[in-house]
Amino acid sequence: MPVLHNRISNEELKARMLAESEPRITISFYKYFTIDDPKATRDALYQALTALKVFGRVYLAHEGINAQISVPQSRVESLRQTLYGFHPALDGLRLNIALDDDGKSFWVLRMKVRERIVADGIEDPNFDPSNVGEYLTADGVNAMLDDPDALFIDMRNHYEYEVGHFERALEIPADTFREQLPKAVEMMEPHREKKIVMYCTGGIRCEKASAWMRHNGFKQVYHIEGGIIEYARRAREQGLPVRFVGKNFVFDERLGERITEDVIAHCHQCGTPCDSHTNCKNDGCHLLFIQCPRCAEQYQGCCSELCRDELQLSPEEQRQRRAKRENGMKIFNKSRGRLNTLTGIPDPD
């Protein structure tokens, strides 16, 4: 039986990736389709992608596949053909090519079987995820943004919305996608006659969200084909005005793709304009937050004085201190107006 997981340390794998001479391309893709045996599919696909030197994260479930990966530049076409031929449902699969990419987004291939490729909390047996809203391409998105009868709904988390979003898009104030779905229905209830446009990073969340809205009786539901990534790419290629403002948060080492030069967020420590996410250098915290260069120097890459001071302790002292507290949220979260219990950083007004 072949080895279907890595046995080399992350440090060595990252060093190997950084030493590569050939550029890598960061790609994301997803597809909702029925997978009868996700584990067997995972194992077969793992071997196929490993042969192409693919790195990244791939999740499989009975409902489909979701992936964020990187591949050597010379093997992009081989990857495309491998996926097209792997399963009939993947033939013609759209690959979202990263916009602001240095190719250093991943250094290992991790593939996991999950209950859902997007945790949605939906238990209604009558829900049909294939009954999605109407796709919008870049020109259609811009037209909708000029339509007073259209509402744009951002189906991403607060930390994503905070650094960039479409003009006049509404944020759903919830911490998770499973909480956003019923909240979106509730918020849009007074606007059933409106056109509802849903969007997310690469399309996977807003596609399911559009099906959920239709399941709940909304008629004029749209979602952006390929999400923000594909919209920005097509708008630039076609010479259209780019109506997404700021940075697009991405879930890899980059933590963001620059769409426009606008900086609409602020440092979570001093309030200066900034949209650079980072993780707290204290491994006992690892909070995701926005930090400007001045605060990064002052706090040594940490989110608070507490974490900065803890980082200077011996490993044993750090373990003792962490054992005495609960490990709270891993992101700076504004949607519920709460103080982060680990760092003591309050939410800004």
Results as ranks from 00 to 15, higher is better:
90 L>T: 03
90 L>P: 05
141 V>Q: 11
293 P>S: 11
225 E>D: 14
248 N>S: 12
16 R>W: 09
238 Q>A: 14
181 L>F: 01
76 V>G: 00
66 N>G: 12
220 Q>Y: 08
180 Q>E: 10
279 N>P: 09
102 D>P: 00
260 T>L: 09
164 G>K: 06
248 N>W: 03
131 N>C: 10
338 R>W: 10
76 V>L: 11
330 K>C: 04
185 V>I: 07
280 C>I: 01
62 H>P: 06
128 D>G: 06
251 F>T: 14
326 E>P: 01
313 L>M: 15
194 K>E: 13
319 R>C: 05
116 R>M: 12
245 V>D: 03
197 V>C: 13
2 P>R: 12
60 L>E: 04
307 C>Q: 13
28 S>H: 02
202 G>A: 11
234 R>Y: 10
49 L>K: 02
86 F>P: 04
101 D>C: 07
80 R>Y: 12
193 E>S: 14
261 E>C: 04
224 I>S: 07
221 V>T: 00
347 D>E: 08
295 C>H: 06
138 A>Y: 12
12 E>T: 15
349 D>A: 15
67 A>M: 09
79 L>H: 00
204 I>V: 15
86 F>Q: 03
326 E>W: 08
44 A>G: 13
50 T>N: 10
291 Q>E: 12
182 P>H: 00
47 Q>I: 13
215 H>V: 01
127 F>G: 07
227 G>I: 09
95 L>Y: 05
106 F>H: 03
184 A>P: 08
6 N>G: 03
200 C>H: 08
41 T>Y: 14
27 I>C: 04
